[in-house]
Design a binder for these strands. Sequence first.
DNA 1: TTGTATGCGTTATCAC
DNA 2: GTGATAACGCATACAA
Lengths: 360, 360
Amino acid sequence: MQEEQHPMTSAARRATITDVARAAGTGKTSISRYLNGETSVLSPELRERIEAAIAKLDYRPNQMARGLKRGRNRLVGMLLADLTNPYSVEVLQGVEAACHALGLMPLICHAANEVDMERRYLQLLTTYRVEGVIVNALGVKEELLQTFSLGGIPVVLVDRSVEGFVTDMVGLDNPKAVALATRHLVDEGFDDVVFIVQPFKRVSSRRAREAAFRDTIGALGATGSTIVLDLADAAPALAAIDAHLRDAGANLQRVALFAANAPVALRVALHLKERYGVDWQQRVALMSIDDSEWAELAGMTTVRQPTYDIGRRAVEFLHERLERGLERGPEGARMPARECLLPGELVVRSSTRRKLSPGT
Amino acid sequence: MQEEQHPMTSAARRATITDVARAAGTGKTSISRYLNGETSVLSPELRERIEAAIAKLDYRPNQMARGLKRGRNRLVGMLLADLTNPYSVEVLQGVEAACHALGLMPLICHAANEVDMERRYLQLLTTYRVEGVIVNALGVKEELLQTFSLGGIPVVLVDRSVEGFVTDMVGLDNPKAVALATRHLVDEGFDDVVFIVQPFKRVSSRRAREAAFRDTIGALGATGSTIVLDLADAAPALAAIDAHLRDAGANLQRVALFAANAPVALRVALHLKERYGVDWQQRVALMSIDDSEWAELAGMTTVRQPTYDIGRRAVEFLHERLERGLERGPEGARMPARECLLPGELVVRSSTRRKLSPGT
DNA sequence: TTGTATGCGTTATCAC
DNA sequence: GTGATAACGCATACAA
């Protein structure tokens, strides 16, 4: 009844290590050794038989069983707050590449901006016994993460820290990046800068960027203010922006808008276009952190984050901790929390180049 | 030596079902029963003890072990060719939501446009014994997918079919969508439409869209041509576009550019901006399939794909096959391949609204 | 150099 | 109602 057109066992279940052993006329141990690269302790002849059997049966070791036995399944959890944000996708690319290089498999969880999803996914990751987690979340709290740490599962934070919780974290060097951008604006002759940021919530980077903005503006002796824009209800903030623009125009001030990230920048740009028409760029200068794909098209100045490297570093941090945990006992993985702050790169485009001589 | 500050077993390994059984003063079987909702056959008293023990130990069943025993681990593979393409992210959202609702866990694999990665990831999915796969790939061939089908693992294709391989597939209704868009252009008075598409390669949807374009243009008696643009080497195609635009201008023809998807549209838009300046939209009309986030900002007409539903349907297809496979024997999952073609929605923006009276 | 036996955490089969 | 016990597929200590 078995049709053997293809080299594998028809439409039945996959071959197991036992099947291979039988086909190769040997024991499971030798197969296991072959799989784990203990190639030196195998007679060339047996080795060939094993290779043949594996090929014939199209055998693939079952990672689940393997993980169960070894205690580690090479799975690492990657929790992303919002894949809609190009930042996340880019970080992800770095994470994937690094994981691949290290033989790890990222289990990607996309919370789609739902705080409740974050919690559920984190719990789920726990049931799959991931060896570590990389977290870029919106509302995760310390206690949730403690579960991992206490269980000996390393946690690496991306882009934001979590209050009351110390671990490795990697992200943009916000102070430097914001200072760079702000200084650029002032240098270009803008004497009134409006920083636009989402409600801080639990997101430390938002707060950090805003603080850096105020510091820099103060140090430069320029005029600056902050407007908080909630993407779920942007009207009030947009009205505030309009008002500010109107007043500044009356005072002959040159104002620049500085968005704290790409989603905010897009929302603001859409509003400006709607309000001032297609040539809104002639009327108001907009820049942002995050160099999204449309920035070039819109000719908008940005600060490009080293997203790929951020992802890569996050995995490296994780990997180092995993290694440590292996060498010493499970309790010996103690190691001070590290922080990796990568520099942003200013990408100057037409939106912030001086167009009008001051006072005109 | 054990510090019991937190309710769980210090920094050691996670609690197992045996631990819970011991803590509850019962056998593993009862715990298992409790976990699997066989709640009716448990005395209320025992039930409470179990609940308490689980809470106290912060016990989480190990999915790996569970999968090993049951033969199914609720994992489904999701292979994505390019997360950089917003289309993919949107489809993913649908997939995730549907999976979550059905108790499935998507294992997301991002091939980053590397055909070789696709192959590797597909093999990897096999080792994790996913119960099914949803594939949106660039270069996977029939043989690779056969491995899954023959192994009794359902495959659902998204957006594109694979030559010589029959399975469920879900995507945009390309003929209708392209016809809708093309007719719109002609209605708006464009008498020369250029369709721009990436090299067909193994991507069936590209071919389908181009064919639909030619059919529609022919049926409408309008002038149309196709330019193939390779994102990795766009110069020739862009030059061809320039030439076409020049010639058409000389002949007083109104030409519209129709990009087959968002990445192409972006590349073309960038070129046009570079060539014609910030008011390039005044000179040439551009539309595209895929309603990317910058389309609104650029005022570009698009065909919006029902991405979320595409993802959802894909999971539903998969789920139905999984159920079938359970009821009847593993061989009884036979079921004709289905195709779900969802309609696109025309989003008209300023880019294609008549600006010049013909012949001016 | 090779094979046997045991256990990883869970579910399923069968007794009680 | 409840609880031993045998698998699931694999790795490993140990024996041969």
